[in-house]
């Protein structure tokens, strides 16, 4: 993991190294508690925007859990990510309704516009592209969410308009 400054989804430009004292506090507050690993990982992801390997190694050392186990828990839950996320997370619904109404085409258009694949982040760390499995808004299909905002009946030709809102 390189130590250059990264964009964190919650705090803008920060130096990742400067966040480690806060990680120490997170670990300290949970240390020794039964089932502490997942709450520590959640707080760590909130802090860094993702789970850097260095942070995971520290968590492993401090909690006494083998690194393989920490990695196993991280890999089990799709919520956790070990790659830095963009400032905005775009999620394209691939539930049945969205899929049949062209969700796949919307996704392709976003991939082309952002020049990334699913689960990747743009080089400028602005966008991370993900797919979702039904947002419960099937009547609005196909649906795209950017962070907490929902876009309905999205057409492949209109994805630029969405992206421009976050430019």
């Amino acid at each position: 993991m390189t130590e250059k400054s990264k964009v964190c989804s919650c705090q803008g430009e920060v130096n990742e190294e400067s966040l480690y004292p806060q990680l120490d506090d997170i670990i300290k507050s949970q240390k020794g508690k039964e089932g502490a690993l997942i709450p520590i990982l959640q707080a760590t992801q909130n802090l860094f925007g993702y789970l850097p390997e260095k942070a995971l190694k520290l968590i492993s050392k401090e909690t006494g859990k083998p690194f393989s186990e920490v990695a196993g828990v991280v890999g089990f839950y799709s919520y956790f990510s070990t790659t830095p996320k963009g400032k905005h997370t775009i999620r394209v619904c691939m539930g049945t309704a969205c899929y049949v109404r062209g969700g796949q085409e919307v996704l392709k258009a976003l991939m082309a516009a952002l020049k990334i694949s699913v689960c990747e982040t743009t080089d400028d760390r602005k966008f991370t592209l993900e797919i979702g499995r039904c947002f419960g808004a099937c009547g609005l299909a196909p649906v795209v969410m950017v962070d907490d905002e929902t876009f309905q009946s999205v057409k492949p030709s209109k994805v630029h308009e969405i992206l421009e809102k976050y430019a």
Binding site: E53, F67, S68, F76
Partner: peptide, 26 residues
């Protein structure tokens, strides 16, 4: 603790963290 279940479902594997080789972990 070199080995643990990594990932989930059909794709899951038993092994060191993040698909490392055994020689690269404890």
């Amino acid at each position: 603790g070199s080995l643990f279940a990594q990932g989930r479902g059909f794709e899951s594997k038993i092994g060191p963290a993040f698909d490392s080789n055994l020689a690269d972990v404890v």
